[in-house]
C-alpha cells in the first residue's frame, strides 16, 4: 500500500495507527489537521479539497521516502481527504513510527509541512456569508485591493500555510 493516500471518505485513524505498529518501534507520533471554522478573518462553513491525484500520489510518496531516509524512521503514512468537508472533520493525517520519539516527532513535522507546500491539493473555503474562495490563489490572483481580509502577497504563498497550520489542533 502506498505511504501517501487520497481518501474521499472519512479516515479511520485507529486502522491507520495499527498499520504503523512495528515491534522494533518505541515511539509513534501522529498529526491530525482539522477543518476549523475561520480563516483570514472570515467565518468558514465548510471546505472543499481538490486533488490532482496522479501527481499528488507521486509527490506524496516522495515525501514519505524522504522522511524515512532523512530521519531514519521506520514507517511513515499520510492520508489526505478530498471532496467536501464539514467543520471539525479530519482533513489530513500523518503518522510516523520509529525506534525513538525524537526522530518520530521531527519526521512527522517534516511530512506535514512538505505535504502542504508540495502536493497538488487545493482548498476552497465556503464562508458563512455565502462567498467562497480558493485558499492561496483566487484572491491573490484577482485584484488584491478588493479583498482586504486576504492581504498576503501572491509571491509569498507560504504565509497562509503558516498561519493556517498554527491554528490546527493536534
Amino acid at each position: 500500500m502506498s505511504r501517501f493516500r487520497i481518501s474521499a471518505v472519512p479516515v479511520d485513524t485507529a486502522a491507520l495507527r495499527a498499520e504503523l505498529f512495528d515491534p522494533t518501534c518505541g515511539g509513534f507520533v501522529a498529526f491530525e489537521g482539522w477543518v476549523r471554522n475561520h480563516n483570514e478573518g472570515l467565518e468558514v462553513r465548510r471546505l472543499e479539497y481538490e486533488v490532482y491525484a496522479p501527481l499528488a500520489q507521486r509527490e506524496g510518496e516522495r515525501i514519505a521516502a524522504e522522511a524515512c531516509e532523512r530521519f531514519g524512521v521506520t514507517h511513515v503514512l499520510c492520508v489526505h481527504r478530498v471532496g467536501e468537508l464539514a467543520i471539525g472533520e479530519l482533513a489530513v493525517w500523518v503518522g510516523v513510527s520509529a525506534p525513538h520519539r525524537d526522530e518520530a516527532f521531527r519526521a512527522c513535522r517534516y511530512v506535514i509541512d512538505a505535504v502542504k507546500h508540495r502536493v497538488p491539493i487545493w482548498k476552497k473555503e465556503h464562508y458563512v456569508n455565502g462567498d467562497s474562495g480558493w485558499v492561496n490563489c483566487e484572491r491573490c490572483a484577482a485584484d488584491g485591493a478588493q479583498h482586504a481580509t486576504h492581504s498576503h502577497s501572491a509571491h509569498e504563498p507560504h504565509s497562509a500555510h503558516e498561519s493556517h497550520s498554527a491554528h490546527h489542533k493536534g
Partner: peptide, 10 residues
Amino acid sequence: VVFLPPVAGG
C-alpha cells in the same frame, strides 16, 4: 499538460 495553482493542502 497541467498548470498547477499555488497548492493549499492540509
